[in-house]
Write a protein that binds this DNA or RNA. Structure first.
Lengths: 183, 183
DNA sequence: GCTAGTCTGTAGCAAGTGCTACAAGAGGAG
DNA sequence: CTCCTCTTGTAGCACTTGCTACAGACTAGC
């Protein structure tokens, strides 16, 4: 493999960690280059664009996420909405996933501003969420599966959003409250 | 009242509309000044800072929001979590409130990046949400009211977040799904 | 009139942004 | 050797950012 392609992978791996720890706060070319241990000039040699740098990195992160989610709850299992919600909630508020959820909220906000390449990435990740939930959702015939899946995702994303805002660690208490609220 | 103070109010009113329609995408001093119909020089005469411009504007928006919410559901009424959630969901996904919820998500993301003055404003608005929910929540004694309130807010915010991402109008379908999920 | 304080425009600065022109070294192919 | 492609550094461009120095204009009080 060419040096260029090797470097692309190295850079993507380093930037994945960078984005997960710092969010989208430090995403100028020079900041990304420093985090990747290369010069900004070379970053634009390995990738055509800043947009391509970010797209490749976030795509890699999304990939890790999908496999992480898949591993956390095997494909075959089907749960009713309540159980799936509680399971997903404890999953995404764990120390591992919190960093991702924070990044996720920032990405959605960036997409809301029509910033590229966030719109495309957000759509891709959201589709991943939907299919993950849908594949594990046990629902009676005739239910609007897409709507229930979306509502569950909304709940999970909302927990993350509130978690971001809170000084104190509200996540476990909210999870407890959910048990009382959900069917 | 001095010209300066009159202009402050004029500017704040115009910028409230600006932020509600464009989100945080166009918030450079020059863009804000154009939206307010003044020069950027004068914007920094009326306000000390860009941060103060934004803080004042968002504070005004938050004020409108609070009174809007208060009017939508009178202070005295107490609803169980399910009813309050459904009510709040239909409230915040309406055409009027959607603009605010989008802005809200963007503000939370900005706060996550430690950008000023978003952190302070987000904390303020979140506190407003909490007290609004708490004042209308009918719960049995001994329940963790703060947790339930936070969970409800999470649900509402999550609906907004998913709504932002979706091309199609998922909000009513998700609301329907909630009826099936909630106790 | 004169002065003091309030108001407003012009012009510009220093820093940071994404990106590029250009040259040069390295290393293989003929 | 020469030629050619891949790789890398230096320097810088055009632009946007938040903010400011400075000078002029307007009004109020004396």
């Amino acid at each position: 493999m060419s040096i260029r392609n090797e470097q692309r992978e190295r850079v993507i791996a380093l930037l994945s960690q960078h984005l997960l720890t710092t969010g989208l706060a430090q995403t100028s070319l020079r900041q990304l280059a420093r985090a990747a241990g290369v010069s900004d000039r070379m970053l634009l040699y390995y990738f055509t664009d800043k947009a391509e740098v970010l797209a490749a990195t976030m795509s890699a992160i999304a990939g890790q996420l999908v496999s992480g989610l898949a591993a956390a709850l095997p494909e075959g299992t089907r749960l009713p909405p309540r159980d799936l919600a509680l399971r997903a909630a404890s999953l995404t508020t764990g120390p591992e996933m919190r960093r991702f959820m924070r990044l996720w909220v920032e990405m959605v906000a960036a997409a809301a501003k029509n910033e590229e390449p966030y719109k495309a990435i957000v759509a891709q990740i959201m589709a991943g969420f939907r299919s993950w939930v849908d594949a594990r959702l046990d629902l009676p015939e005739g239910t609007d599966r897409a709507a229930v899946a979306s509502a569950l995702i909304a709940l999970i994303d909302g927990l993350a959003l509130v978690d971001i805002c809170s000084e104190t660690d509200m996540a476990p208490r909210m999870a407890g409250a959910l048990e009382a609220i959900l069917t």
